[in-house]
Design a protein around this nucleic acid. Structure first.
Lengths: 335, 335
DNA sequence: AGGGCGCATGACAGCGCTGTCAATACCTCA
DNA sequence: TGAGGTATTGACAGCGCTGTCATGCGCCCT
């Protein structure tokens, strides 16, 4: 009635549990004929090794831990979906943990997962440099996603934040914009800092002034961005285009535009979001391609699970400018 | 260097491991003074019991399994976020599993989680009646969410599908609509069947004819709904209002409306979605309140983990009609 | 023929915890 | 004073698996 154990398999196959264990773990040193018989017994009994027991014997759980900011964020939702699919394909589970933008919680979540005995971790890290690095375990493989945070000795998969922002702003400039606003929280994340740098560089290259009045670096979420966007777009000399450094900030901007009933302000958002194509006008975005990022992260983790001492790699995926309309609006004339 | 074990705590406290175990599990029969000393030792060593070892001793992992259709669906994303937050609050983990609308995978995922030794399961079930019920384990608590699927002997948390659809269609009727379309896949899910029933009942109550031409029951996702919506809205005698039975179907309809450049078709979507307020016009929805649903599901599971023989309850949460504009449009005049 | 070697397999001790049952000390009541 | 409780604690055997080390056997070489 209860789950069969390795003893049942051993009895069924007519060998010792150790031999079964060898077959299970592909250790070799077993006659092919024996392997076949053990396999048959496993099949016959529908045996599945008990992960807890395995772990107890010093091993790791067939489980991957995934630590992200927010589990209902569309970006991370995509990441979760990909990681889960790949993990299940190779017989592993996924434990999820959210940090909710809280460094302490980030740390405690990581520690919890490590204690649980996960075999590897995919983490969207938090903070910067030493602090960010310190909370990552060294005993198991870790792949850092989305934000590099100055971490040097772990595999990292991120996107071209600087180049993506640069391209977006160049795009706006190419469409005639001279006054382009930047909205985003730069204190918290290096990614947003990189995007701000990309923004500034693009302006400078175009021979345009970087106007501090048009740069808002204190809004993280949509609720914070909304009033700031409202205020920024109100004046007579308001910018004719806006670069939103994250989808949430973009949402705040879109709300402000809706509120102001303005469809003439050009907008590019860093990070795609569902229904962007249904906005009026459809929103032009810098696609971070979360699926590709997640695939790469998982591939790195899988590689490192096999070969823990493989060389550390940093993968920087290119972003993709998706022109949908809002980023191609011309500057409106003076009111 | 390595994690402290119960032996370390016992030594530190000056008692046997069994006494430490008693304190850990709140078994009682331990002098308060002893409890305090053990607690102090635990604190001092930063000891955390090894879940794998616990499970091996016949127990369950401090882990909840969550099985949903899709991990990047906004609705389930909300559910995941809530469940994870609550679970962590009570020291538990969350293992996620997606089924991708595949009955076989649904079953294998559930079996996998059960084998892992999760303490309880929250499942969006699949199929109908016997088949749906059969894959649910009986050894551990299970809470069924979103779809009842004819399951009688498990706790269920769902929403008022019939009433919600009924209210939505009545709302459209009240705004003068006489030709109201229904789009959604009814073969797969009883929830959508209930919504269709609510739709039909509302029409009949209003003395309106239920026109099979206006009912499309074969589209599950946005890609399938799009051409069907396009076709349905094209004729001269096209419906003046549409009821979309799921957010994905709603998305397909919105795409079709965008394509046709029509802003005069009334629309109510069953299930809220991000950015609905930013549509033109903003989309009126029947909010399924995923957060409330997830909270209720978790509460049920927690209750049942404490008391496995508690009476089975079915919680039916009311939906909420969120009027944003698209559902309040008047019927357009003849072209 | 005999020593040595490699291959295939098995016996057994943990891993960290909980369940069972025993032991001890201290009371209580007759 | 002694039998029988009660409260507190501990010894020990698993749980299912893997790591270590031992065993048995056939084969090669000298």
């Amino acid at each position: 009635m209860s789950e069969p154990t390795i003893y049942d398999v051993a009895r069924e196959a007519g060998f010792s549990i150790k031999t079964v264990s060898r077959v299970l773990n592909g250790e070799g040193g077993v006659r092919p004929e024996t392997v076949a018989r053990v396999r048959a017994a496993i099949e016959h009994l529908d045996y599945h090794p008990n992960p807890a027991a395995r772990r107890l014997g010093g091993g790791k759980l067939p489980t991957i831990g995934l630590v992200v900011d927010s589990l209902n964020d569309p970006f991370f939702g995509e990441v979760i979906a990909v990681v889960e699919r790949r993990a299940v394909e190779m017989g592993m589970d996924v434990l999820v943990a959210s940090t909710g933008m809280d460094a302490a919680r980030n740390q405690s979540q990581i520690e919890r997962l490590v204690r649980r005995g996960v075999a590897g971790l995919i983490v969207a890290p938090f903070g910067e440099g030493q602090a960010a690095r310190a909370v990552l375990p060294d005993k198991i493989p870790v792949v850092v996603i989305d934000r590099q945070c100055g971490i040097q000795d772990k595999d990292v998969v991120r996107v071209t934040d600087h180049e993506g922002a640069h391209e977006a702003v160049c795009h706006l400039v190419a469409h005639g914009h001279r006054r382009i606003a930047f909205l985003g929280e730069t204190a918290e994340f290096s990614t947003v800092q990189d995007r701000l740098a990309g923004y500034s560089d693009a302006l400078l290259e175009a021979g345009l002034e970087v106007d501090g009045q048009l740069i808002e670096t204190t809004c993280w979420d949509a609720d914070a961005a909304y009033p700031l966007a409202l205020a920024m777009l109100a004046p007579a000399d308001a910018p004719t285009a806006v670069f939103a450094s994250t989808p949430l900030v973009g949402l705040g901007v879109l709300r402000a535009l809706k509120r102001l009933d303005r469809q003439d302000v050009a907008l590019v958002v860093f990070g795609d979001f569902p229904l962007a194509e249904l906005m009026t006008p459809p929103t032009t975005v810098v696609d971070q391609r979360p699926t590709a990022l997640a695939e790469a992260a998982f591939a790195h983790l899988a590689r490192r699970l096999e070969d823990p001492v493989a060389a550390v790699v940093e993968t920087v995926l290119p972003t993709r400018l998706v022109q949908r309309g809002s980023g191609e609006l011309p500057p409106r004339g003076p009111r």
